[in-house]
Design a protein around this nucleic acid. Structure first.
Lengths: 163, 163
DNA sequence: AGCGAATACTTGACACGACAACTATTCGAC
DNA sequence: GTCGAATAGTTGTCGTGTCAAGTATTCGCT
């Protein structure tokens, strides 16, 4: 029966605020994207990742890693995006188990149209209330947390334009 | 057509890491609580809030504010918890529109049993990789973000033991 | 070469949250 | 006091994610 070390008041305070943000932030992003572009944040992010890939093409496993989703989830989402003509599936030449996701012209247009509004939302709700020092601190802290949450670094590689 | 101000590389880097945490953290907490206590994080949090309230009782609206949920969501959750005998509904004497949620003995037992494992998870994944200075920075930064995300302060009032 | 294990996805069933519509009660203005 | 508006909560439907199971292909070992 291991002794439980409780949290200090400072830790608890920070923790509760982090939870609150984790609970509230998705809804905020979701709402704006849904309203303006009829996209889930995850759908947006998926399209954005594809838009940055060479030939706007990625194997679904890589895309799953980039968006930090399970393959099952991604498969469903790609199916929906495919129905809307924003993404296309293609068999992968090198590995016939694999499937490539390809961003269509229509899909590209949608991301491009959605990006400014999304960035504005991000600025207004997260970036603007922070000083440059805050941003640096945030980056450092999230990196530390991520290295435990996601030791394989799938999610926080350096390269990638647009939020 | 408003000009879009893009994010600086520093802002982008921090932002992407924050998103990653927001995406990954819930799953981690969820998994442990589900496994060890058969509870959603939200259910745990709900029970925890009740456990701290006077008489382990709260009006559903207050509970919704404390857990930062909509009334509809909370109502569903309370129904599930009620079926499991962890919470009881009671009509509110002062305001007959209102309903009180009351934590049962069984419910209390469940939170108490679940708390140590949950705290350990929180420590391991979030608190331990941070220095005390990081924790202070995190608290400050999340407060700033919250004051925009949740201007009414519903979520981040000071008092409250246990995570 | 061949066979078992691992990889890459797909699909169907189910659970949880969001939204909208509805009931019931209380507040406020006149 | 009464009537309209606001508040408190419930319920049903639907979209999205998770989990488990299934298929197809490739890898690795001997």
């Amino acid at each position: 029966m291991p002794e439980t070390t409780w949290l200090t008041p400072e830790q608890l305070s920070a923790w509760k605020k982090l939870i609150a943000v984790v609970e509230l932030l998705p809804g905020t992003l979701e709402a704006q994207l849904q309203r303006d572009a009829d996209l889930t944040h995850f759908e947006y992010f998926t399209l954005a990742m594809l838009s940055e890939a060479p030939d706007r093409t990625l194997r679904l496993s890589d895309l799953a890693a980039a968006t930090n989703a399970t393959l099952a989830r991604l498969s469903h989402v790609v199916s929906r995006l495919e129905r809307r003509g924003l993404v296309r599936r293609e068999p992968c030449a090198e590995d016939r188990r694999a499937t490539n996701g390809v961003l269509t012209e229509a899909g590209l247009a949608v991301v491009v149209a959605a990006a400014p509004g999304h960035v504005d939302t991000v600025r207004r709700h997260v970036i603007d209330p922070l000083t440059p020092a805050d941003v640096a601190d945030l980056d450092r802290i999230m990196l530390r947390v991520l290295s435990v949450l996601d030791p394989t670094n799938a999610m926080h590689a350096e390269p990638t334009p647009r939020p």
